[in-house]
Simulated assay, not measured.
Amino acid sequence: MRTLAKLLLTTVAAAGLAACAQSEADTMGKPMMSSSASMSPSGMGSSGMGSMDPVMVGGQSMLPSKTIVDNAVNSADHKTLVAAVKAADLVDTLRSPGPFTVFAPTDAAFSQLPPGTVGTLVRPENKQALTGILTYHVVPGRLDMMELQRRIMAGNGSATLKTVQGGTLTAMMNGPHNITLRDAAGHVADISTYDVYQSNGVIHVIDHVLMPK
């Protein structure tokens, strides 16, 4: 199992390197894309949660009164992620009080992986590898955009985030209003939608799948 998981991760990481490197080059200096709700004064920071309007993700309103899973299942852009969460038996975990910060890859992000990778990972025999990848996208606590920026500034340009998987992600500013994430292998993902508040945390939508070592 351990050998298979390592091979899967190595295959995915190698195939994603070129795409992620190109994304990093293409997005240097690109302004942040975010919903109007997450950019409004009432939406900035956890103190504004009560008065913030729902953010639209995948054509649906993400209601702050619902859990991470209960919102994600309604997003047309996160069908692959939801299927993977179910295959890894993480539904109950992501419905628990948390709080959690989830960096959620879109279906388009998963489609950049080598053909057949997702289908292989969701097989029962590869549950350990799948769980490792998914929990690498989860950080304990409610880290909204303002908190991420605060940590990056305190770290002189970067912040190390400890994931539930046990590995680390590095958050960096890419221009004045855009945050990128670098995984353990050096691949980079942009946050395309910030501060999608949930009852048990916050989601940030990202454009690439992140990989632990």
Score class of each variant (00 low, 15 high):
Asp92Lys: 14
Met145Val: 14
Tyr136Gly: 00
Thr193Leu: 10
Glu125Met: 13
Lys79Ala: 10
Ala84His: 06
Met153Trp: 14
Leu63Phe: 14
Ala129Met: 01
Leu121Thr: 05
Val91His: 04
Gly141Pro: 15
Thr163His: 01
Pro124Gly: 05
Asp144Gln: 12
Thr106Cys: 00
Asp89Ile: 05
Leu181Phe: 08
Thr101Trp: 03
Phe100Tyr: 15
Gly141Glu: 12
Leu148Val: 09
Ala88Tyr: 10
Gly98Asn: 13
Thr93Ala: 09
Met173Gly: 13
Ala154Arg: 14
Thr163Asp: 02
Phe110Pro: 12
Lys66Pro: 07
Asp183Trp: 05
Ala159Leu: 10
Val73Phe: 09
Ala87Lys: 15
Ala171Ile: 10
Ala171Arg: 12
Gly186Pro: 11
Gln149Phe: 09
Thr135Arg: 09
Leu148Asn: 04
Arg95Asn: 13
Thr67Val: 10
Ala185Asp: 08
Ile179Ser: 01
Ala129Cys: 04
Ala108Leu: 12
Ile68Gly: 05
Thr180Leu: 03
Ala108Asp: 14
Leu169Cys: 02
Lys127Tyr: 08
Gln165Trp: 06
Ala129Pro: 07
Gln112Gly: 07
Thr193Ser: 08
Ala129Ile: 06
Met172Ser: 11
Leu181Ser: 04
Leu90Gln: 01
Pro114Gly: 01
Met62Phe: 12
Thr163Met: 00
Met173Asp: 14
Met172Glu: 12
Asn178Thr: 12
Phe100Leu: 07
Lys79Val: 09
Lys86Phe: 01
Val82Ser: 03
Gly175Asn: 11
Met173Gln: 15
Thr168Arg: 11
Ala154Met: 13
Thr80Pro: 08
Val139Glu: 01
Ser158Ala: 13
Pro97Gly: 05
Thr106Gln: 01
Leu169Arg: 04
Pro105Met: 04
Ala129His: 01
Arg123Gln: 14
Pro105Cys: 06
Arg151Thr: 09
Phe100Gly: 04
Leu81Met: 08
Pro64Arg: 10
Asn71Asp: 02
